[in-house]
Design a protein around this nucleic acid. Structure first.
Lengths: 193, 193
DNA sequence: CCTACCGATCGGTAGG
DNA sequence: CCTACCGATCGGTAGG
């Protein structure tokens, strides 16, 4: 019988689940306390505030995304291969931690002032990593040049960011690997015809 | 000097704006009352409840989307042309009514029981309209057959549903028509190579 | 459409 | 980590 994870990380996991499911604003600290088996006030010996909890979840999740892209960007693959790897890595993270991903993409708006700005800028970093791949591909002729690179990134990330809404371990259990299909579609959308 | 729209429709417009901006749960009836220049209690002579207001906004918006696809599906164009038209129509609606679109895609989760089920089923109808286009294209050879049609629809709608996050009248004021670029990318992603 | 108000619930804290 | 509680705010209503 394994021992449970330390309470504070248990709290973060449950918070991510609740924020993903009900939304940040509609999740009360009492909901969270129930989920981890504490009384509401007791949460505050482990966390400092509700928003701090959201911030930790969001920053942690974004770091995983940007971190997964670093080795891909640093590799000496073609832009086409890099884009395909980036898409695969992104969907892998989505599947691995659906709740965290869902929170980072849909709940970051509830952060206020400084917290919000920091997160927005980290998200821009992630978008920029994709942009770099696309731009490289356009300039060396791998990708078609009649498509604006920034729009391309928004389309690709749009399709990917929407994935937590429907992507689930079940979907990928079929005989086709859904992530590969998505990657194939999105890469194709950029290849010259 | 034009006269203002009737108060009840003004309430719905402002509600859509606030729900889109702050989220449904985080928008209070007091926020809404302030926005339309009434006292909180007075709202209830025009609407029956907060959720009813959300339901009206969401159902109205979905109807515009499915309604826009009807003539496209009924036309005798090729699947490729239909898909391109559907994408254009979708983005047109997004640009025209950003708030309503944002609410329909991100706030429908706050509907409860019956209301929620009705809305989910209307959204499925919309997805099915796209699915029909893609399936037709696959079976007559216009679209590649190695891509699962359902996944294709989720990718296309993912990219489109994400658009309210960044798509704005400003974006399309450049020398390129962003909607055309998106359409070109998404159609290309399905063409045989 | 306002006045005046309801009970319920919110995030968070003091003191142990 | 619990007991006991805070002021603020919530969606909504009765009566005019």
């Amino acid at each position: 019988m394994k021992h449970l994870p330390p309470r504070s990380s248990r709290i973060r996991t449950e918070a991510a689940r609740l924020f993903a499911e009900k939304g940040y604003a509609a999740t009360s600290m009492r909901d969270l306390a129930d989920a981890v088996g504490l009384l509401p006030g007791s949460l505050y010996s482990h966390i400092s505030s509700k928003e701090e909890l959201l911030l930790e979840i969001v920053e942690d999740a974004i770091s995983r995304f940007t971190g997964a892209l670093d080795p891909i960007l640093a590799s000496d693959s073609t832009a086409t291969e890099k884009l395909r790897s980036a898409i695969r890595a992104h969907l892998q993270l989505v599947a691995e931690s659906l709740d965290y991903t869902s929170v980072v993409f849909h709940q970051w708006k509830f952060l206020t002032s400084d917290n919000r700005e920091r997160v927005v800028s980290k998200r821009h970093t992630y978008e920029h990593q994709f942009l770099e791949i696309v731009r490289t591909g356009v300039s060396n002729g791998e990708f078609r040049s009649d498509i604006d690179s920034r729009v391309a990134v928004l389309v690709v990330l749009g399709a990917l960011n929407w994935a937590p809404e429907w992507y689930s371990p079940t979907v990928s259990r079929g005989d086709v690997d859904v992530a590969e299909v998505i990657g194939e579609m999105l890469v194709s959308s950029l290849l010259p015809r």
